[in-house]
Computed example of a mutant assay.
Amino acid sequence: MLPARGLSEARDAAVGALPRAAKLTIARKIAAIALSMWKSKEKYDLTKHRKQG
């Protein structure tokens, strides 16, 4: 199961923040998703994620 907040929310939270803080926010989100997938032994499924942009 993926974390409740999506990548777009992480990006929105980083808007207006310093570039270093924004990068840290995105890195934490990626780490949380990777840990969740690893713990559940789930493979990445592109259809579960909407395209950003």
Results as ranks from 00 to 15, higher is better:
residue 16 G to Y: 06
residue 23 K to G: 09
residue 14 A to G: 08
residue 20 R to Q: 07
residue 20 R to I: 07
residue 51 K to Y: 05
residue 52 Q to A: 08
residue 34 A to M: 03
residue 7 L to I: 12
residue 5 R to A: 06
residue 52 Q to M: 14
residue 41 K to L: 08
residue 46 L to F: 06
residue 16 G to S: 09
residue 8 S to L: 13
residue 51 K to M: 08
residue 24 L to A: 12
residue 26 I to D: 00
residue 2 L to W: 07
residue 5 R to K: 13
residue 8 S to N: 13
residue 33 I to R: 12
residue 45 D to L: 11
residue 26 I to W: 03
residue 23 K to R: 15
residue 27 A to G: 01
residue 28 R to H: 12
residue 27 A to L: 05
residue 34 A to S: 09
residue 9 E to T: 02
residue 31 A to F: 13
residue 23 K to V: 03
residue 26 I to R: 05
residue 27 A to P: 01
residue 37 M to L: 13
residue 17 A to W: 04
residue 38 W to G: 02
residue 36 S to R: 04
residue 44 Y to Q: 02
residue 15 V to S: 01
residue 47 T to R: 12
residue 27 A to E: 03
residue 1 M to C: 04
residue 48 K to L: 11
residue 22 A to E: 06
residue 46 L to E: 12
residue 33 I to D: 11
residue 53 G to P: 11
residue 18 L to Y: 02
residue 29 K to D: 03
residue 47 T to N: 12
residue 28 R to P: 00
residue 14 A to T: 01
residue 39 K to N: 11
residue 14 A to V: 07
residue 35 L to K: 14
residue 34 A to Y: 01
residue 30 I to P: 00
residue 53 G to A: 14
residue 21 A to V: 13
residue 2 L to K: 11
residue 1 M to T: 14
residue 28 R to C: 01
residue 53 G to Q: 10
residue 7 L to A: 10
residue 42 E to G: 00
residue 51 K to L: 08
residue 6 G to Q: 08
residue 4 A to P: 10
residue 22 A to T: 05
residue 18 L to E: 04
residue 40 S to Q: 11
residue 30 I to T: 06
residue 28 R to E: 02
residue 44 Y to D: 05
residue 32 A to P: 03
residue 31 A to W: 06
residue 4 A to G: 05
residue 32 A to S: 11
residue 51 K to G: 00
residue 12 D to F: 03
residue 43 K to F: 12
